[in-house]
């Protein structure tokens, strides 16, 4: 776990400002809910946290590491999408295995960990 810190983060699309100078500190282990009307920048904030979009200004820190412009894969962060994002051409097991396989884990290790997860969730 780590802390997530936003430092006057701004995101604008052309003339439209989606997030204006957001300062935010999410402490280690904190459970935080963003609540607001649609179009107020909740999704934009989350997507900047995950690294799917880059902020127009400001800094984002995970602990003392500056991740403002880091690629999503270098952030080690989980993200649940609004629309279904299961890979339709892969089996359930392959969907679970995807993250491990792209990180270059060994096949045998992936298989045991996928089995473990399937057992825990009583999928099989």
């Amino acid at each position: 776990m780590s802390t997530v810190r936003f430092e006057s983060v701004t995101k604008s699309y052309g003339q439209t400002v989606a997030v204006r100078e957001l300062d935010l500190l999410v402490s280690d282990g904190e459970f935080l809910t963003l609540l607001g009307p649609s179009g107020c920048g909740k999704t934009t904030t989350l997507r900047m946290t995950a690294g799917l979009i880059e902020p127009s200004g400001g800094r984002i820190w995970f602990d003392d590491q500056d991740v403002t412009y880091a690629a999503p894969r270098n952030r080690n962060i989980g993200f649940v999408f609004q629309s279904p994002a299961l890979f339709p051409h892969l089996s359930v097991a392959d969907n679970i295995a995807f993250g491990l396989s792209v990180k270059g884990h060994k096949k045998a290790e992936i298989a045991t960990r996928v089995d473990e997860m399937l057992d825990r969730k009583s999928v099989v």
Partner: peptide, 26 residues
Amino acid sequence: PLVYEEAAACLGATKWQAYRKIVFPL
């Protein structure tokens, strides 16, 4: 949908891995 590539990126895939394993088959 773009979401498949984004999901792949969040799971640690490089752009090329996302293309080869997700976009190309789909």
